[in-house]
Structure formats: structure tokens, C-alpha cells
């Protein structure tokens, strides 16, 4: 079973978590000022990288918190996790890899 480290609770089994989509996507402050294309980008378009991906997870069957994770989409390896509100850690893909 995949082990995910919750920033509050520590290493916990995958079944306690829910995926929450790409992280660090801020809702536009003034949506009505956006073009349709810009609004569509906010709603639908994601980076979908091959490699490191910053994404939201929720420890739904634990502390209930949302937090962020850097996961390698090739190996499914969780490079690190960090609390919501903290900046994306400055880690490049070469430091990721299989456990």
C-alpha cells in the first residue's frame, strides 16, 4: 500500500486520503474582468506534467486537512508533502525517483 506523509499526522496509508487536483491554482480575484479563454484556463486547463507535480491531497479519514504534495507522475513516488499555504518546495525532478 502507498504510504503518504500527512504534514499533521505523519506517515499514513493511502486509503485515508483523497486526491484534490493540481495545487497552487489561485481563483482570479475579479472573474468578470477575465476573457472567456482566461476563465476557461482557470477552470479546466492544468499542467499535467510527466514528472514532478504539485497537487492537493486531503487526509479525509484522518485530520481532515488539505495539504500539498510533490509527486512524480511517472513513478508515483511522493517526493515531499507540505502544509497548505506554504510555497512549493524548490525541488527539481532529478531529486525524485523510485523509493
Amino acid at each position: 500500500m502507498l504510504i503518504i506523509t500527512c504534514p499533521w499526522c505523519g506517515a499514513r496509508p493511502e486509503v485515508e486520503f483523497r486526491y484534490g487536483g493540481e495545487a497552487h491554482i489561485a481563483r482570479p480575484a475579479d472573474p468578470s474582468a477575465l476573457t472567456d479563454q482566461e476563465w476557461a484556463d482557470f477552470l479546466y486547463n492544468r499542467t499535467n506534467p510527466k514528472g514532478l507535480h504539485a497537487e492537493r491531497w486531503r487526509h479525509i479519514h484522518g485530520c481532515g486537512r488539505y495539504f500539498n504534495a510533490l509527486r512524480d507522475t511517472v513513478s508515483d513516488f511522493f517526493v515531499t508533502t507540505y502544509k497548505a499555504g506554504e510555497p512549493r518546495p524548490d525541488i527539481d525532478a532529478s531529486s525524485g525517483g523510485n523509493p
Binding site: C9, E16, H61, G62, G64
Partner: peptide, 10 residues
């Protein structure tokens, strides 16, 4: 203490 799961139940 912690919330967790037992089979499919929280």
C-alpha cells in the same frame, strides 16, 4: 487517537 478506517467504515 486518530480518525482512520476499519474496512470501509470511518
Amino acid at each position: 487517537c486518530t480518525r482512520t478506517v476499519f474496512h470501509k467504515a470511518e
